[in-house]
């Protein structure tokens, strides 16, 4: 870009978030939103789980978004997530949970973005009753050495760390539940010192 402007050092105060509310269902979900790759296609995997509240009850009106590297660890820069052509990997997906709180993505295992890095999905969670979006991560369980060396995971107690690591089921799928509150509450992340 030739039109580089002087960068102001003055920080603007961010606009506050608000709950996604109960009525996003006709607005935010879109066809094949959860299919980063066509379901059942070669090398596709299922990332799935349930969103729970503080009583351990499934939440029927939550929305989950994932953003990930491709299977080689490259960060996608492709448009077309909202109108998928069936071939382009955009790395981003969005799906509402069903009536029983379950979400499903069809995608690929993210690769390590650098040698030795533990691969993970970046996740954003939205729900009625949740005042602001929550960020978290879900890691692939296989590379135990990379998980040991991961900066975020090694800053967590073992009991909390395991809330961020998916379980690989016999069918090859990744199972990962999201608990907004309670004993096994998922670790949610603050990137901006929002408190």
């Amino acid at each position: 870009m030739s039109t580089e402007k002087p960068v102001s050092t003055e920080k603007l105060t961010p606009t506050p978030g608000q709950t996604v509310g109960p009525f996003f269902g006709y607005a935010l979900p879109f066809e094949k939103g959860g299919e980063l790759v066509p379901a059942g296609s070669p090398n596709s995997i299922k990332l799935h789980g349930t969103v729970f509240d503080g009583n351990g009850a499934p939440i029927p009106d939550a929305l989950v978004e994932i953003w990930q590297a491709d299977s080689n660890g490259n960060i996608p820069n492709e448009t077309g997530s909202l109108v998928r052509d069936g071939y382009t990997f955009t790395g981003w997906g969005r799906t509402p949970v069903g009536n029983t709180g379950k979400y499903v993505f069809s995608t690929v295992n993210p690769g390590p973005t650098e040698p030795g890095k533990a691969p993970f999905f970046a996740v954003a969670v939205f729900a009625r009753g949740l005042m602001n979006r929550l960020f978290t991560r879900v890691y692939l369980p296989e590379d135990t050495e990379a998980l040991e060396n991961d900066a975020l995971l090694s800053s967590l107690e073992p009991a909390r760390r395991k809330t961020l690591i998916a379980e690989r089921l016999a069918d090859g799928s990744l199972h990962w539940d999201i608990r907004l509150q309670g004993e096994d509450e998922t670790v949610f992340l603050d990137f901006h010192a929002e408190g």
Partner: peptide, 12 residues
């Protein structure tokens, strides 16, 4: 919001 907010502080 009562049952749907994290009770542990967000992890930096």
């Amino acid at each position: 919001s009562i049952l749907r907010h994290p009770t542990k502080s967000l992890h930096h």
